[in-house]
Every structure is written in structure tokens, then in C-alpha cells.
Design a protein around this nucleic acid. Structure first.
Length: 264
DNA sequence: ATGGTGGTGGAACCA
């Protein structure tokens, strides 16, 4: 089973690129973040033509929005809310074979890395704390689960272009890394991409729109992740980070798709 | 220290 996750930054703006991802990467399941569309307006038809006849969408006007697209029917579907908000950041679907798949969009957190000064940063930290507690109390490490999405945190030194320069930049601050690591430890999540790539090797999934030449400066961060629970660790068969997608015409997302293959 | 770009929606907000 090939699972792709992509912060698409508006599914309507980038439908042609989503169809290109399907043609070129041949995923079985696609998780999206930042769809930026209410469910009634989600563009189901072109996806159905490509075989993705099942869609679990959870969107809102203008902001956020997550989705899970599949060729096979879901066993069940659900959504989860965090921090007493209804902001469409977490969709859940059980796939045939008993794998529970989570498409997650953690808040970006604003610019100032201080929860006292910046409500958005406080929201981000609380979001991760709540989710950590939820995994620990509502889910078992024995369960076959895959969690993917834009976690908006780059936890390792080589998940950013410069560890030293980004220590005070939201997405790579010690408090965020500590909280994300705690979430990972909650039920023994395995970082599926780092399972294949040693920690001293640079990996990025996001490059800012604001760079003059994103590829030349290559100031990226690994914000998009695929985690699996221990029972699926031995099923991990490969990964791809579609760096080229950062240059896809006419208008690329600032994130690229991350793909993991599971032998299940 | 600043500003750089993009999506939504038609100003201001978010990333």
C-alpha cells in the first residue's frame, strides 16, 4: 500500500497537480492538508475519474482543511477536534485490513516563539499536548495506525537547513521539538522516513515561497511526516520525498508530497 | 532588522 501525504495549499487551485501526483506516483491513498474548501465544494469528480472514488473530507472556508482519498472504501471514518475549536485539522479513516489512518494539520504557530506573547504559538503547543494525551489514553501502541500530515515542526538538526539559525524560529524551537518528541514517545510512533534515512542526512519537505530561488538557496525544513505504530514497523518498504514537486508548474505548493510504501 | 510570496476573497488574515 502506497500512502501519500501533501499539504496542497488549496485543493481547488492545484487540482491539476494533484492529478499529476496520482499519475506519476500511483498512490493508493492520499492524505491532504490545507485543502481550504468546504466539503460541499470539494472537487470530487476529477479524483473519481482517476479511481479515487472514496473521499473523507473535513474542510472549512478559507483556512485549514484535511482529507483522505482512497480507491477502496473506508471501513469507518471520523474527525477529531482540538483546543475547543472546530478548525478542521484532523481526519481519521479505517482502511480495509484494519489500519487506522490519520491526516493531521498542526497549527503553524505564528512568528513569535513565546506562548505569552503569541496566542498562535500557545495554540500550537496546546494542540500537541492534547494530541499526546489522546494517543496515550485513547489508543494503544498495539493498534495498526499511520499518522501523516503537516506537523509544522522539524524535530531533528538535519530536518532544517541550519539548526543554529533556526533554533529561535517557530517550527524548530526546543519547546516544539520537545513536545513533538513527547508525542512520538506516547505510543512508540516510528518516524517512517527516518527509518530509511540516517539522522545526519538533510531532509526537507517545505521551502518558503519567499525565497528568490528555492532550489538554489535550498533553505528547506522537514515539516511533513509519516509515522507508524510498532506493529507496522516491519511493513515499511520504502519512501519518497517528491522534491521536484516544489517546482511543478504552473503554481507549486510550498510543501511537497511525502510517500511511504507499506507491505500490508 | 527587514522583507521577501502565495491563497482566500475582495480587507485582512494566515502561512
Amino acid at each position: 500500500m502506497r500512502i501519500a501525504t501533501w499539504n496542497i495549499n488549496s485543493v481547488r487551485m492545484r487540482m491539476e497537480l494533484l492529478l499529476r501526483l496520482i499519475d506519476e506516483a500511483q498512490p493508493d491513498v492520499i492524505c491532504l492538508q490545507e485543502t481550504k474548501v468546504v466539503d460541499a465544494d470539494f472537487p470530487f469528480a476529477p479524483l473519481a475519474e482517476k479511481g479515487f472514488t472514496h473521499a473523507h473530507v473535513h474542510g472549512m472556508k478559507s483556512y485549514n482543511g484535511v482529507a483522505i482519498l482512497a480507491k477502496q472504501p473506508f471501513v469507518s471514518r471520523d474527525v477529531q477536534h482540538w483546543c475547543n475549536k472546530q478548525d478542521c485539522r484532523h481526519a481519521i479513516a479505517e482502511l480495509p485490513g484494519g489500519i487506522e489512518l490519520h491526516s493531521v494539520y498542526i497549527p503553524a504557530g505564528g512568528d513569535i516563539p513565546d506562548p505569552e506573547q503569541n496566542d498562535k504559538f500557545a495554540h500550537k503547543l496546546q494542540f500537541v499536548d492534547e494530541m499526546t494525551e489522546w494517543w496515550a489514553t485513547k489508543r494503544s501502541p498495539e493498534r495498526r495506525m499511520v499518522m501523516v500530515g503537516d506537523l509544522n515542526i522539524a524535530p531533528l538538526e538535519h530536518d532544517v537547513w541550519s539548526h543554529k539559525e533556526l533554533l529561535k524560529i517557530v517550527s524548530h524551537t526546543p519547546i516544539e521539538v520537545e513536545k513533538l518528541t513527547a508525542m512520538q514517545s506516547s505510543i512508540g510512533w516510528v518516524d517512517a522516513v527516518r527509518h530509511f534515512v540516517p539522522p545526519d542526512q538533510k531532509l526537507y519537505t517545505w521551502w518558503s515561497y519567499r525565497a528568490k530561488d528555492w532550489a538554489a538557496s535550498d533553505r528547506g525544513r522537514r515539516l511533513d511526516h509519516v509515522w507508524v505504530t510498532p506493529p507496522l514497523k516491519d511493513s515499511l518498504k520504502g519512501y519518497q520525498i517528491l522534491r521536484d514537486a516544489r517546482g511543478w508548474e504552473p503554481k507549486p505548493s510550498d510543501h511537497v508530497p511525502v510517500i511511504v510504501d507499506l507491505d500490508v
